[in-house]
Design a binder for these strands. Sequence first.
DNA 1: AATGCGCGCAACCGCCTGCGG
DNA 2: TCCGCAGGCGGTTGCGCGCAT
Length: 497
Amino acid sequence: MEEMIKPAPAPASSEEEKEVVATAATGERRHEEATAGREEQEEEEEEEEAPVVLKKGPWTTAEDAVLVQHVRQHGEGNWNAVQRMTGLLRCGKSCRLRWTNHLRPNLKKGSFSPDEELLIAQLHAQLGNKWARMASHLPGRTDNEIKNYWNTRTKRRQRAGLPVYPPDVQLHLAFAKRCRYDDFSSPLSSPQQSAGSNVLSMDAADAAGAASSGYTSARPPPLDLAGQLAMGSRPVQLLAATPFSAPSSPWGKPFARNAQFFQFPHSSPVSPTTPTGPVQVHPVTPELSLGYGLHAGDRARLPPVSPSPGARAELPSSQLRPSMAPTTAAAAATGGLVGGALQDHPNAASLEAMLQELHDAIKIEPSAPPENRGTEEEGGGGGGNLRGVSGDGKPEVELKDDIETLFDLIIPATFPAAAPEPAAAATAASAAPNHSSSVSQHSSDDQDHSNGADVVLDLPILTGGGGGSSEQDDWSLDGAACQWDNISGGICRHEFR
DNA sequence: AATGCGCGCAACCGCCTGCGG
DNA sequence: TCCGCAGGCGGTTGCGCGCAT
């Protein structure tokens, strides 16, 4: 605080005074002030007869001092009175902005920490460009700061053809997308089920904001990570805990300025590598967290699919597709969907068949122009890798049903810590409503896209993406190899081996 | 050394909302 | 109900700086 209140400057020179009360806030005067007269300048007393022409441009330390002094004496608010009471040639708006963005106490300066960056990404995924509300979740940060950060960051990542959101947030949105198809009254999204969970809840303001933002009723509550951050005591569970180590993550890569900070401190309350809480099914081991890398040994830890409280107990009959011939060979070839977990599932056979069929039928078309690829801007519920008609002529809408069915089954099996969490599901309705995603299990000899990955997530790049980039980004998954591959045009693929 | 370019950031602008007269 | 004002918010602009050429 002390350094923010600069000592009163030496009496301004007469020409400086004249400058301050100059009538035209021209660009050249602005330039002069920016360069020469930045250090000291005062204008507390000037001729009252002169028409008051409010100053623009960068604030001087003297002006800051005046404003700080005024706020100390009179408190915040009534910003238009500042000019009258202090003679400061700034409009109320400018005073308010200067105070809130630079002068008020407890402002955090400097680069965003990795925790904050992650939080911003999550908040943005939930709220969109609601900078002020995002700022309310980030103590000491201003909406302007967050906005600037996000805009530059987004530009950079889009230019690089990288997804705007980190994988876990994308996954979150994938859940969100899926959640929108669920009956809101179903157990999956029943609010009661979130009781006792430490997965974040929506506060009233956010709920109101959600309504006013035009989101659906199933819109997710924003993650209350900020609350966790502020409280510093209660552990937080990210919806999809980040399984990768931040310093090597593609999420962190473009942020060289934060490279030295980009480690999720395990002491941090929002450290994604510090998952806790009742729904943390698996202990986080160095080689695996949250079912991301499904090694053979890990598969045994997967919970049964169907009884999972988060998964719907019954699939819609229309989605069960009983006529589909079981493709047990495919299941055998893949070693079973998600390990053995689904092999015991009553629908495993048909599921495997669907998987095989879908995997054969639904192909990403790298040659297709990005505008046909279903990025979020397109909307239409398309997107992802569902394009047109399958190889056997299955209409797209049917494929979509299949995908949704797969979501019901695969998500709980693949991400057992996330999917069964009803609050997370309720949390996860979408701020980016038109994303489609798919999860598929690739056989070991199926190398066309998966490179032998155990689990492959194809997620849309959420803000248009670079399109056509073949950029590839690998990161370590604490032992499990993982790949971020912007295949082309709005799809990024996460492969977990 | 000079120049161009990109980035980060501060500040402005316009619109919207809430409130009181 | 209308109007004006104050404040808030999100988008945009423009400057300064650092880096690459």
